[in-house]
Write a protein that binds this DNA or RNA. Structure first.
Lengths: 206, 206
DNA sequence: AATATTGGAGAGTGATACTCTCTAAAAGTC
DNA sequence: GACTTTTAGAGAGTATCACTCTCCAATATT
């Protein structure tokens, strides 16, 4: 298919597709002469993945680029790739207090989670805890454990639900579930918070 | 205190404080002569709230502005204000398929959650489900229920943990917990996903 | 009197994600 | 075979966001 058809199938303007090609987010099509290139199903899928991560997942193109680089990484163990793709989903320039890092490490150890010790998510979590403390809200251990157990239930179900497929597909699916499931979970949490606050603070009518 | 002191206490540059004043995110100080104004503890707290929402919560200034408008709304019932402040945390221009809206409504009904029927979170959730479907990943009812139950556990604990305080404080705390607790929950979920995928796909070493 | 700080307003900056314009080459149409 | 349309590729332009800088006259401080 030509670029116009790729644009039609994905609802992404031709100019934007060209921009993604230039930026290396989308592999070039198969050149047919100097001013023509053919695109295939792989391009459709890749383009949908990019748009999903950007629009629904709220990722920057820079972050999408890192994620795609990991998705395409073929030399490593699948589990390693999943970890790396995961890492690419979050900001890289984080600092967190030692106190919070210790709390995170203790939590991971207590739950017996198998996590790379250098996983950026550890630092990210410690940083998020710091942000709460900084604004005067202390996240106590009990609440943290409730978060962890809820997170665990969700994650186990998500990973169990991942369709079997080839390696590329599995990595893509994992990235998608992680990036797009987040908004789902957060929306449900806000709904549940509204319900809980209705019970705590609400008048009778709602 | 003068603006320099406000800047020192909050670690926000004077130029940025002036910008927030101009943008109406921060109320003006008490004018003392033509070129001097005094700021107080309320300004420090407001400024910390803004930075927490922007930096840790990842909100745009426009969204922060709507949230603050709701926080300052004094004429309404507390529970209503909480709902509105909640609504201000999410984008406003959403469209979702009828199919997903129905699934959301059914889920809310099944759980017996007390939610305003026009809550923007319903649409937001339906939209997030659509985004997953669009990319070829079907979120089945069982998984959706697991998300909902995990969200419920977290939300109940969060609301129960909210300190007693005056109305203004309660609204601020709710907004903070909602906005800053999100990253915490998502980070824990990613850690739990890594653990789950270690078990499903992992080699022995990690 | 000399120096420093402030409020206020406008202009400038850097990053991000496109979007538009242009050119020469090629493909399709009559 | 002339004419119209489409394409690849690259550069320039645009819109938004969140600051950040500069300047001024009016105070305060030393």
């Amino acid at each position: 298919m030509w670029i116009a058809e790729l644009s039609r199938q994905t609802d992404v303007p031709v100019a934007t597709i060209k921009y993604y090609l230039r930026e290396g987010l989308l592999p070039a099509g198969e050149a047919v002469g100097a001013t023509r290139a053919r695109y295939g199903e792989a391009h459709v899928r890749r383009l949908k993945l990019i748009r999903a991560l950007v629009e629904a997942g709220g990722l920057s193109l820079a972050r999408v680029r890192s994620v795609l680089a990991e998705v395409d990484e073929e030399s490593r163990d699948l589990h390693e790739v999943l970890g790396a793709a995961h890492g690419a989903l979050i900001p890289a320039d984080l600092t967190a207090s030692d106190e919070s890092r210790r709390r995170v490490d203790a939590l991971v150890a207590e739950r017996g989670w198998r996590i790379y010790s250098e996983s950026p998510d550890r630092v990210f979590l410690a940083d998020a805890i710091d942000a709460l403390e900084k604004v005067g809200y202390h996240l106590d251990d009990e609440l943290l454990k409730i978060y962890a157990s809820a997170a665990n239930e969700v994650a186990e179900a998500e990973v169990a639900n991942l369709p079997d497929g080839d390696r590329q597909r599995t990595v893509e699916d994992t990235v998608l579930v992680t990036a797009l499931g987040g908004p789902v979970l957060l929306a449900l949490r806000r709904l549940a918070q509204q319900n809980a606050s209705a019970h705590r603070y609400g008048s009778t009518q709602y």
